[in-house]
Nucleic acid binder design. Sequence first.
DNA 1: CGATCGTTTGACAAGGGTCAAAATGCGTGG
DNA 2: CCACGCATTTTGACCCTTGTCAAACGATCG
Lengths: 245, 245
Amino acid sequence: MNTSSALKDNVSPVVTRLSHLAKLDDVDVLALVEAERDQRTSSARREFVKEGQPLRERRALLSGWACRQRILLGGQRQILGFLLPGDLMGICHHTNPIAMATVLAVTDVVTCSVPGPDRGSGLREAYARSAAFEQHQFLAQITRLGRLNARERLVDWLLETRDRLMLAGLATTAQFTVPITQEMLADTLGLTPVHTNRTLQALRREGFVSWRGGTISLHDVPRLEAMVSYTPARVSMDGGAVSYG
Amino acid sequence: MNTSSALKDNVSPVVTRLSHLAKLDDVDVLALVEAERDQRTSSARREFVKEGQPLRERRALLSGWACRQRILLGGQRQILGFLLPGDLMGICHHTNPIAMATVLAVTDVVTCSVPGPDRGSGLREAYARSAAFEQHQFLAQITRLGRLNARERLVDWLLETRDRLMLAGLATTAQFTVPITQEMLADTLGLTPVHTNRTLQALRREGFVSWRGGTISLHDVPRLEAMVSYTPARVSMDGGAVSYG
DNA sequence: CGATCGTTTGACAAGGGTCAAAATGCGTGG
DNA sequence: CCACGCATTTTGACCCTTGTCAAACGATCG
């Protein structure tokens, strides 16, 4: 199409995702690509950020999954949300920031630095929309936990996760990779592993989803969407974008 | 104390709250006071903002309560959180923002405009910390709904709400005003009104709280805090402040 | 003084939790 | 290539928290 799409094709999920969120010009994309050369790997289970500790630098996820979680005294865990490839972390606008949650590498993970928003305004816009989109996910998580039953929570989460992965170019409408255990899913959905398993089996038995070797396939997307009245977040560049205000 | 505290004493919850969040100089405070002259009243049940509609202007709550809510098809409601006096709304950093949730006046409400962050950097810092604090509340809401039982949800919410009101100078350690019905509380905590009522009664019967005429008293704060391992959000000016990063 | 909204009560149902054990899968080392 | 050990998934039986439905009670307001 245009010059920058040549740059965007087959590049990192960071560029793909941010390009979906705002119009980036070549300067923006080059800055991202440049920043991506500063990569760092960490292995599964490592804690990037610890709740209550000062926040260091802003980075983006290049590959792998991470999660934000809180551990309650008593050992229960609540996973607040997952960080998927292309997602940003550590962006903050005030002094002395302190992490509100622990960020844990779910799989082996590669992160990279991200340029400051000072260059083109495209990046600033993309970062702002990225933050708003994340906010949207937190609000969705609240309604999920507060008002949906086990089956609905599961379906809603699957659809949301699919959409997020699609934004980074990592999913099709009906298939995507989910490198997490059912126990983690339970800690996300506010359920026990046992009940999560049973709910999942029911959906499988009824032919709605399959989950083999970390790959999830949705077999009747329209009905799944109807089941939870799913409305995708509005994050496309054209038209308005979500903002909690 | 100093010159600006003379301005801050007995003034609006907006100034009180923002002063707790960041160091504001006289210029900042005067800008706030000036902006407060642009007041607008709306009566209970009015919808300030409708989910999916463009966001208009940024404003602050001077008095009364509002809530952010979502209605699911099927008519269930989830209250995402309350807006208390001193809280900001409509602040957003990208173009074409769209409301992620409906904002509803719970009581009669007075709002005022708030100055842009351009003046002193104090306001910018206060706004950023305010946003981070709000984010903190959403994350707390997620853990509440995901991992606490009815009694714990209720206690945790009471303690958080007390702290937020204290920030605006509207509560003491053990007493504050809560102008909402048990039904709204139920929609906040992800419970039914009936069960909320029973949980509340249990806490009353055991002498932990009383709730008469819209005023809540906590009678054994240490034990209540222990019950949910309550940790107040770190939002004081000195030391770090929460940021979800 | 009815009307209406909010709170309280009771009886019962069900969704989801708990505990414990059995299967299955998978990486590692022999 | 097989066997072992560990993590994960699956199953079963039972219990408990929370939801549901319906009605009574209480307060507030025109």
